[in-house]
Structures are given as structure tokens and as C-alpha cells.
């Protein structure tokens, strides 16, 4: 009798094992959610207060070209975008007014009075606005990478993210000066560039602004290359910049305010010239497309400010988004 009970019990246990295995095999695996994982919640960090949106989108231009990396706007408010061995020109209505092919992958673009300057990896190429190549300047650092170009009437300034310097060239391509070395005498802090983001732009007072991404600051230099001052604090609040190296891109509006883009959280903010937060232009939710995009990619590739006060944003979906200040 005891034997019988033991056998029945054992057989039932074996059936239980079969049941457990079968259930585990055919059961739908427990769903993983984005939120259940990574404690430092990127999703909530990317959210912006919609009440603080000070700009509104007026137009989206589909470029139809993948892999665009740079955008600039000339004084006639024509929009130039580059990347993928191409330069495209659009007018304000979104119509393509020109395009030409270039013989390298370009990283950034700037326009002079009659020329277009392109970052060709470590070197700089100069094209006429009709798309004819005028010159290719010898790279300062063969391993370098030009991430931003700014042009005034005398000189061309190029930011080299690998050399961590701003290179000042005369219009014939001669290197005139290296700007931004660490210098304890003048107090120049030196650029810290942990990742390949290094943007420069001209300010209102014929001065040069550059991001010091490792310090999460914007720094001001004279056009002669002397360090003047800077602003910016490390915070995940609106009042400063977050992450290890931000802002990734910036532009200066005609009224002197700064438009900044922070990678990682995908926020476009406006600051006044002293570094006080004014408003948002866009957040991660502002850019959407149907193209392929890795989850961790940055949504914004570059941005520019027009003389009309509009903000032009090139997003990862190959669209140009034009933002206008909201009416009060």
C-alpha cells in the first residue's frame, strides 16, 4: 500500500515536471519594456515643458537625401545643406534652387560672400556658389576632423575637433592662426572635446563663439583669438547643459540670443547672450519620420539661424525644419 502511494506520488511529480517544461516552452515570454530597464530614465529626461515652447514650426522641407550632416543659411536666406557628397540649395518656400556634387563626404558647410566652404574630413574645400571647385586646402592635421566653419569678410575659421583648435585661414587658404590652446597667462581654458562635436559661430559684436563641450560651456573669443569669457553650467535642468559634452550644435540669432542643441536629450533651447534660459524651440517629440534610424541616434544633425530670425534645423530624417518665434 505504501509502495502504491509512493508510486502515485512520484508519477504525479513527474507529470508536474512535464507540465512545467511544456508551459515554459509554449508560454509567451514576459515582455521587456523600455521603462522597466535603464533606471536613469532617458525617456522622461527627453520630455520638455510644452508651455515653454517659444517657437513654432512654419515649414518642413523634405530633402530626399540621406546622410546629410550640415546646414547653413546665407544673407539672402537661401538654405544650404551638405552631406553624402552633395550640396543642396533651397529657397525659403522649400523649392530646390540648386544642387551640385562634390568629391568627398562633407561634414559641415559655411557660405562666404561668393564662396561655399565645406569641411572635407580633415581638410577644407572651397567651391564657388555655382558649384565649381576652387581649391582644396592642405589639412592642418591629417587625422583631424573639421566639424564647423565660420566665415567673416577677412578670414575663415574652422573648428578641428581632433586637434581641439580653431584654425584661422586667410581667404587664399593660408593658415593664419591657431586659436584656443590652453594658456594659463591669458586664462584660456583650452577646449575639451570628448566626442566629435565642436561648433563655432560669429556673434553680434564681430566676436567668435565656440562650444567647449567637455566643460558644457559656450566661450567667447575675439576674432584675433583672445579668450574673453564664457557661460554655461552643467545641469539637467533647463538652465544649462546636460550629458558629458554639450551643446552639440549652436547658432546665434540676429538679436544676439543663442540657439543650442543638446545631443542625448534632443532639446533645442534658446538662451540670452548672458546665458539665461529663455525658451524651447523643439524637443525629441518634434522630429518624426518613417526612415530607418537607430534608437540611440541623435535626432538633430545641425542647425542654423537666418538673418530673418528664423531657426533652421536639419534633422536625422533628412528634413529641414523652419521655426519662427511665436507671436506674443
Amino acid at each position: 500500500m505504501r509502495q502504491k502511494i509512493t508510486i502515485v506520488f512520484s508519477v504525479l511529480l513527474l507529470l508536474l515536471a512535464v507540465f512545467l517544461i511544456a508551459r515554459d516552452l509554449f508560454q509567451k515570454p514576459a515582455a521587456l519594456t523600455n521603462a522597466s530597464c535603464c533606471g536613469d530614465d532617458l525617456v522622461s529626461m527627453k520630455q520638455i515643458d510644452v508651455a515653454l515652447l517659444g517657437y513654432t514650426r512654419t515649414r518642413t522641407i523634405e530633402t530626399g537625401v540621406k546622410g546629410l550632416t550640415g546646414i547653413t543659411v546665407d544673407e539672402n536666406n537661401r538654405i544650404f545643406v551638405c552631406g553624402n557628397r552633395q550640396v543642396l540649395i533651397f529657397d525659403q518656400s522649400g523649392k530646390k534652387s540648386g544642387e551640385f556634387a562634390v568629391d568627398s563626404v562633407t561634414s559641415c558647410i559655411a557660405t562666404g560672400s561668393n564662396e561655399i566652404y565645406l569641411g572635407f574630413g580633415s581638410g577644407i574645400a572651397c567651391y564657388t556658389s555655382a558649384g565649381e571647385k576652387k581649391a582644396l586646402w592642405k589639412p592642418f592635421n591629417k587625422e583631424g576632423l573639421i566639424t564647423s566653419i565660420a566665415v567673416n569678410k577677412d578670414y575663415i575659421y574652422a573648428a578641428d575637433a581632433v586637434s581641439k583648435l580653431i584654425l584661422k585661414y586667410s581667404s587664399d587658404g593660408r593658415l593664419a592662426q591657431e586659436i584656443g590652446k590652453k594658456d594659463t597667462l591669458t586664462g584660456a581654458p583650452g577646449f575639451i572635446i570628448p566626442s566629435l562635436y565642436f561648433d563655432i559661430s560669429f556673434g553680434d559684436f564681430n566676436d567668435l563663439w565656440a562650444v567647449n563641450p567637455g566643460r558644457l560651456r559656450l566661450e567667447n573669443y575675439t576674432i584675433a583669438g583672445h579668450y574673453e569669457a564664457g557661460w554655461g553650467i552643467a545641469t539637467s535642468e533647463n538652465s544649462g547643459f546636460t550629458g558629458c559634452c554639450n551643446p552639440a550644435h549652436f547658432a546665434i540669432l540676429p538679436d544676439g540670443n543663442f540657439v543650442t542643441y543638446e545631443k542625448g536629450v534632443d532639446k533645442i533651447k534658446v538662451f540670452d547672450p548672458t546665458g539665461r534660459f529663455l525658451c524651447f524651440i523643439a524637443g525629441a517629440g518634434s522630429f518624426k519620420g518613417n526612415t530607418d534610424l537607430q534608437l540611440n541616434g541623435n535626432l538633430v544633425k545641425d542647425l542654423a539661424a537666418g538673418s530673418d530670425g528664423f531657426v533652421y534645423v536639419l534633422d536625422a530624417y533628412s528634413q529641414i525644419n523652419i521655426f519662427r518665434k511665436k507671436d506674443r
Binding site: V105, F120, G121, S122, G123, L145, A161, K164, S195, L196
Partner: peptide, 13 residues
């Protein structure tokens, strides 16, 4: 050659 050097490997400063 230049373009090859610049973009074949992702370099970091």
C-alpha cells in the same frame, strides 16, 4: 586618400 583616412575609421579626439 584623404576621404578614406577621414571616414574609414571612427576616430575620437
Amino acid at each position: 586618400l584623404l576621404t578614406f583616412n577621414a571616414f574609414s575609421i571612427q576616430r575620437f579626439p
